[in-house]
């Protein structure tokens, strides 16, 4: 569990989800599932955040908002696509205003497909993200990572 040496903070943005995943994200931070035991704290400020949780799919109007939040986050950063909508568009894939999953605008590191997600799945994804974050941190130090690759 060496990757737990840091305390990454998360920021959550609801793309165009139905709210199901959003309240499960919050539930994961609550006493029963307690994501905070990994040192993970929910923040509202992109400049404080290391992990971006994106729920819901991308549409014309929120494209720039998502990109704005992502660009404001300091490197190294990890993006988790929460739920099937953020993965591929899910049940709303055929809607006229849905462009697709979160990877249409930002590079996604971890996908959590289900509808809606369970808090356990999110914890699993967050722990995976911690490993990726650590790797990115090392890469950044050695200069292997190209900043803002997308």
């Amino acid at each position: 569990m060496s990757m737990l040496s840091k305390s990454p903070w998360i920021i959550h943005y609801d793309g165009s989800s139905c709210n199901g995943c959003d309240i499960e994200v919050l539930a994961a931070l609550m006493p029963r599932y307690d994501l905070e035991r990994f040192g993970i704290l929910n923040t509202g400020n992109p400049k404080h955040a290391d992990i971006l949780l994106l729920t819901g799919s991308i549409n014309e109007q929120n494209k720039s908002v998502v990109l704005n939040i992502y660009n404001q986050m300091p490197n190294p950063k990890v993006v988790i696509a929460v739920g099937i909508c953020a993965t591929s568009g899910g049940v709303f894939r055929e809607c006229y205003n849905v462009l697709g999953g979160a990877d249409k605008v930002v590079p996604v590191d971890v996908y959590v497909p289900s509808c809606p997600i369970r808090p356990e799945a999110l914890i699993d994804a967050a722990v995976k993200a911690l490993g990726i974050l650590e790797k990115k941190r090392v890469d950044l130090k050695t200069g292997d990572m190209i900043l803002n690759s997308k």
Partner: peptide, 14 residues
């Protein structure tokens, strides 16, 4: 408003 608009009312056609 309109950040979460998906247009699912039209999905009844599909």
């Amino acid at each position: 408003i309109g950040f979460v608009h998906r247009g699912l009312e039209k999905l009844v056609e599909k």
